[in-house]
Amino acid sequence: MMRDDDLDQLFAEAATQQMAPSDALMTRIQADAEAWQPKPRPVVAPAPSRGWLSAVADWFGGGMSLAGMSAAALAGLFLGIAQPVPVVALTELLRGTTTLDSLDLLPTGGALWTLE
């Protein structure tokens, strides 16, 4: 048997040996690298940030929906504050506090502005 020290010395010598690849091999490897290299990815600019109003409009289903809901809310507020005569009469009729012989459900424009 060979001594362990001698074998270890032989291994150490072998470990210091550098295997130099030939120029032809390095050229072949580099050619493969270039052939398989992915193309650089284009840089895409980030989308501009949108305002809070756009986010709210999206939540309600778009700008048109939001505009319609806003108009309906303003109309309700107006009717609540102004309380035009035809609306008051209709409310009383529905509550049963008064009776009407006739009710004009399509009042003229001026009637809407008549305050009680």
Partner: peptide, 23 residues
């Protein structure tokens, strides 16, 4: 870096790995 398109990276990696792999 190589995967992102850097050519020098492949040369550097080849210089490091090829002698060891060959040995």
């Amino acid at each position: 870096l190589y995967a992102n398109g850097d050519r020098e990276a492949s040369r550097r990696l080849t210089a490091r790995l090829a002698p060891r792999i060959l040995g």
